[in-house]
Design a protein around this nucleic acid. Sequence first.
DNA 1: CTCATGACCAGATTTCTTATCCGGTCACGA
DNA 2: TCGTGACCGGATAAGAAATCTGGTCATGAG
Lengths: 233, 233
Amino acid sequence: MPGQHERGERILDAAADLVLRWGYKRVTIEEVAKQAGIGKGTVYLHFRNRSELFLSVLVRESVLLTGEMLDELRQDPIMMLPAEQAQLVYLGVMRRPLLRAMFSRNIEILGDLALDPAMQPLRRVKIDLFGDLFQVLREHELVRTDQSIEAQRHVMSAVQTGFYLAGPMLGPYNTHDDEATAALLAHTVREALHAPGPPDRAVLEALQPKVLAMLTDFHNALAATVHGSSPED
Amino acid sequence: MPGQHERGERILDAAADLVLRWGYKRVTIEEVAKQAGIGKGTVYLHFRNRSELFLSVLVRESVLLTGEMLDELRQDPIMMLPAEQAQLVYLGVMRRPLLRAMFSRNIEILGDLALDPAMQPLRRVKIDLFGDLFQVLREHELVRTDQSIEAQRHVMSAVQTGFYLAGPMLGPYNTHDDEATAALLAHTVREALHAPGPPDRAVLEALQPKVLAMLTDFHNALAATVHGSSPED
DNA sequence: CTCATGACCAGATTTCTTATCCGGTCACGA
DNA sequence: TCGTGACCGGATAAGAAATCTGGTCATGAG
């Protein structure tokens, strides 16, 4: 049996590769199977159907990114702050062509995959994460307390959305590379949401385990939805 | 001859009404002419072609909005500040169904009209306006001076884009009405771009004529591109 | 003479029909 | 037990025919 990692992963590799080369719409299950060196039916031993397969590709990328976030957070608790997180996520997304296509609504590559109903629960998990995170940060006055959590979530969503979409839209007027844009995004989030003044390192460090646990839960919840070992029951 | 205002305006009225009811794609020139109570060929005495007609509808709305901005700015020079402007524009756009459809990329109603190449020069005028505006504000330290003008323009675009698009995208999680969202947008822009501390009223008032002139130029430039009196040469 | 008009044309769009493809299943065989 | 590819039907694409509509312009009203 060729390849080092297990079959489910190889299917995901093949699917990811083909989507980037041909676009979601044009990739057939048979072609994915061929590229993975297996029979067509075998794909269905791992994924219930077509969209679950491709969604898994996206989720696997997200899991990788979340893993990176965890590492960074372990190294420095400053990464629990919204601005730093937004910056890191932005750079991580831009580094991954599939996520970049998803976040910048590249309809050419991902088609209507991003609108798939199966995406809904993932969004929910993410929104819950942010709700919880803001709650904790607020309790320790790391973010402003003069806005509601809903307002902060709204600002966070809007600003992030804007930075992902505005780059392409500005066209030739966009003179910023990814690093510079990420820094701008961080600045905007920081000024809009963080409590004034520098954060208290002691508080940050005290909170680190709790936030780490929350992010780990999120990471695991995501990972649990990547099939590829066995089709979900 | 029925109707009070002149024929070009009546054509624009008819077009605006039909676009909102049927969507840009479905509206035919003949139908617009019928609704305006004139013959089909007459439309072409006012507009060179289909897209110029519908673009003019959009531009006319923008001229109205810019007029409101001018009034507000005359009443209170605080309105020259980016946050206040963004807030006012947001509310103005949300109040006008056609502009709302354009800014929130409602593809159902406006189709690919927003992508029309004829839109380009308008964007350019608007971007130039913002460049000039930030330049003036910066010279009088009403906005931060530790960022480049390009960076500030980028932040402004991104944040605005985000707030226009994030509302629909948040779906049921969006608990804010237009007023609250506009306030949130203003807050975000203010914190990200304004100089710290309250603005100096004296400086604001001293600058009022200059900014008023800039906005008036913009207003006139926009108005000049609304045809409807005679097809452009 | 000026200006509005609607019949007219070509190209674009839609509709209807036929052909091909592909997601998903499952009987078979390794 | 597990992997496979032939097979099925619905979906999608391709093609042909019919309809529609943006834009023009000869005509006639004022």
